[in-house]
Design a protein around this nucleic acid. Sequence first.
DNA 1: TCCCTTTCTCGTACGCTGTACTGAAAATAG
DNA 2: CTATTTTCAGTACAGCGTACGAGAAAGGGA
Lengths: 218, 218
Amino acid sequence: MARGRPPAHTREQVVDAAIRLADAEGLAAVTIRRIATEIGAGAMSLYTYVPDKDRLLDLMVDKVGEETPKINITGDWRTDLMALAAAQRALMLAHPWLPAALPNRRLTGRNMLGYLEQSLAALEPTGLDGPTKMELIALVTGFVASYVTNEIAAATPTSEQVALITEAVASGDFPHLATALSSGARGTEPSFERIAGWAITGLVEQAIRPKPSDRSSS
Amino acid sequence: MARGRPPAHTREQVVDAAIRLADAEGLAAVTIRRIATEIGAGAMSLYTYVPDKDRLLDLMVDKVGEETPKINITGDWRTDLMALAAAQRALMLAHPWLPAALPNRRLTGRNMLGYLEQSLAALEPTGLDGPTKMELIALVTGFVASYVTNEIAAATPTSEQVALITEAVASGDFPHLATALSSGARGTEPSFERIAGWAITGLVEQAIRPKPSDRSSS
DNA sequence: TCCCTTTCTCGTACGCTGTACTGAAAATAG
DNA sequence: CTATTTTCAGTACAGCGTACGAGAAAGGGA
């Protein structure tokens, strides 16, 4: 068996090299030629292992999902969802290109499905129906991606957006913005745990309520 | 005054043509050369009106923000935030490339600041401090973008991801996923209003609570 | 009127991208 | 050995963003 010339590399080597590149220099540095030279191959040889670049990105996303530690399902949905969200955030902080690569990407591999499975298990005690659970999971994932994106972007404020904002504040057209920016002193830092707690608790508690419009009768 | 050769076009024409292209054929169709031929100019002439393509995307994002109808601030934060979220969603559905163009894009123009200003005004009755308000607004915006992205992606399910999921379900490794997908019958549709209501109500009510860890003592 | 300065136009060109094509190389099967 | 099958990788092509620079078109000053 195994006829024909044996492969000099593996698909995993290609994906790993791509991830290493993205981690070090960002998604834009991930090009077919760069990856090829990185693993010591000709550019076109990569197409033996990967159909095209878009699928390569799918594989990258799924591969980094392997790093996620297995979360123990305690049975308390709040604890479990928080742990899952924290794991997702850690993954995105370790691979800052992930939030950018995630949208418009299809559900791609078993690792992503595994995350979905765990989230469904965490939501089991709520007694919600399947579609609602799925919706909640998508929402929480979106929250985390959005939070981390802001977190990364806020770490490197551009000088020009500072100029835009200060000019806007000085113009007087944005009074609420001006006061919001000047009221700096606050007690607690808006840590991820605090905000994620709001989102998860608020979202699920709202969803659990028997009828959506019963807020006043309780 | 007005020395030198007069411009044959305007920056607005360039941005409008780019938006028209993105609406019709997606973000990938927005190239300098395409826009140039669209408005009957040489490719390099665009650089008179726009410094580079990245700034052009900034301008596109800010320009479509002009379409947002002015929301009346009623003073009830729930009503106002829901109206703002609905307006955002309508904008994204009208310009499906918007959610994809939005992330890693800096706060860019007065329309975006105007949206921020209105959101801050809507959150005024909550009595929250400035940074927390900002955080909540970013979260709600991220939620809407995430929801619309899913909404658009779900409208066109790929045959291969269907195959992946059915195979995964058949493998038996994902029991919760299997039951979640099979439990189809539910009463209410997960409409945007329902889900956005959960997110906004849950999020703000959680944020308003005096101390984050007082959930058990109330 | 002629010329200078300023501004916009746009053809050419460079380096980069993803990838189709093609023939050589390297393995096994007979 | 030859035939078959598979991978390797060089070449090539269309397309991208955009740097450069020559020409065109306006106003201002002589």
